[in-house]
Design a protein around this nucleic acid. Sequence first.
DNA 1: CACACCATTGCAATCGATTGCAATGCAGAT
DNA 2: ATCTGCATTGCAATCGATTGCAATGGTGTG
Lengths: 340, 340
Amino acid sequence: MMKLEDIAKLAGVSHSTVSRALAGSTLVNRATRERIEAIANDHGYQVNQVARNLKLQHTNTIGLIAPELSNPYYPKLIQCIADYVSAAGYSLQLHLSGKNQENEDKSLVNLRNNRVDGILLVTGEHGLMAAEYAAGLHKSGIPIVLMGWFPGADAFDFVTGDDADGARQIARHLLDLGHKNIAVIGKPVHRGPFDRTTAFINEIAQGGVVIDAANLYEITSEQDAILAVKQLLQTEPRPTAIFAYQDSIALVVCKELQAAGIRVPDDISVIGFDDLDMASYVSPALTTVGCHIDAMAKALVQRLTERITGETAAAEPVGVVVPTRLITRQSSGPAHDISS
Amino acid sequence: MMKLEDIAKLAGVSHSTVSRALAGSTLVNRATRERIEAIANDHGYQVNQVARNLKLQHTNTIGLIAPELSNPYYPKLIQCIADYVSAAGYSLQLHLSGKNQENEDKSLVNLRNNRVDGILLVTGEHGLMAAEYAAGLHKSGIPIVLMGWFPGADAFDFVTGDDADGARQIARHLLDLGHKNIAVIGKPVHRGPFDRTTAFINEIAQGGVVIDAANLYEITSEQDAILAVKQLLQTEPRPTAIFAYQDSIALVVCKELQAAGIRVPDDISVIGFDDLDMASYVSPALTTVGCHIDAMAKALVQRLTERITGETAAAEPVGVVVPTRLITRQSSGPAHDISS
DNA sequence: CACACCATTGCAATCGATTGCAATGCAGAT
DNA sequence: ATCTGCATTGCAATCGATTGCAATGGTGTG
């Protein structure tokens, strides 16, 4: 592949001059520059970024670590991130951790070795992250912005949706609809101040209704939701509403309910969280909470690029919380009468 | 950040020795090596890959260009690709072209400048690619494997699903079900020997039924499908089956049909293509054609890595076609009687 | 005519690794 | 004691850029 030196020979100048010319420096004569540009163009010269990166001590590359792509939430987020990253003039190095802590670690050192300028870490819901881990992460010296919150995340810049508020909106919605017997199918609590389940239960309590412990289902995979539903259908009196931790669970729940002959929302209301595209396609269309994914992605890369360029003077990590909103569709309705 | 030289000083040896020690070379005394390893470890030394890449003239990075992430087909594919790529010891540089030729070009030169070892190009259905473009691509000198086919693709290694065969399977399925009045809602033909629409129409003809020209709807976006359906519902006699070019279209079609009070499949059968996850969630679950995405991804990165390492002696480009299979679900049923 | 100054250009160091070849030193053979 | 050979280690070149500083030459001024 053609290099600076080759062009220099062709143009009868030194490689320094070629470098300057191609960079558009005013330090080189206009005529010379144009001649060099023409030659470089004719021969399809393309700068060797890796040499350039070595000299310049940066790579114009941002590393992105995300759990997976099979939950549609992530592609949506990554799409936005990719767009903002590329708009900011960076390339994206993508690593999928598969919700696996070890992989995440490997990706992190890989990214560091490759001297990416900054890292976006989407931790997902695996909750494996710990303060200790965070500390190790921290001294890598590379700017990192976290998507989501976990214990210890406060040591970093982070961006998260206001899931707690979203959960509260759902709670009020259900309360307004007259529901008094409500089930929660959720994942283990790990998001502290932003935890959906916790906020939901608290707000429900605020409305004067308590959720029976038996109606709290804690699952770790979408598949487990099926079991939860089966179990739930046995309880007496049967709940009139179900709050699912996320849309992907809510979808399974609806499907299972319908398979059992239960009508949604006539018999049981179901509410999800995330506002996946799919949520509006299924029938009944899912009532859920939307996350302004685009806004989050924007905040994420904005924060990171500011850290990279040093625009953000503050040494203090900052967290940005983007609002969520309830999206009422067909899967939620008034509580039906029950002969208690 | 700690460099080779620093470790060398600490260990009282030359940086050459450190380099060799860390690479596990037999050219360095065992005791020395272990001492160096310990020191490097204590000080958290991490090799600078960009310097290493420069010297070694490769980057252990594969570039991936895909159209977008909002059609669920791509995340699924990319997930698989990412897994195989990482299993093969490479990193992934991801570029989303947004179905835009110009972006695709930019990504291509960016990837080239970054000296990725090889490129995976997922062209999608935008059909913008042309033989001329391909030629330009070709002389970049970097190994490229194409996902999908377009005119001119034969100059490259490529991997594609046997969409034509899938379309034929659908045709036979519909024929078996007794359909004689069939509509096609498709995208512009551009996949030559692998084109779905063409293969479908031919196979239907093989079965002795001809598709009325008025029943051939050519659309370019999912949204247009709505118009097509509206128009279709006006025709007399009304088709008893619709073949949609891809699941994302089929979903819109079903939704629109149902909104108009038409029952699927009782009144009209609908068949898609791609087997998105979503296809099994909607109601009625979609009859479609599955693509063995994992197999394609595997073939894709296998082919590319072979090119990179030079295992594949053949200068001749090779195309691999992976089989497709019909997945019969609820959206297709026997043709209803019509009083023609 | 001499000198200062400015516009161009080239020289050479540098980024942080890898690696062929030369140098060193010690052990064993003669 | 001298020499050969092997195991270690270091020197220095190289990968392909960027850039501070020196060198060059031409022009304008006193």
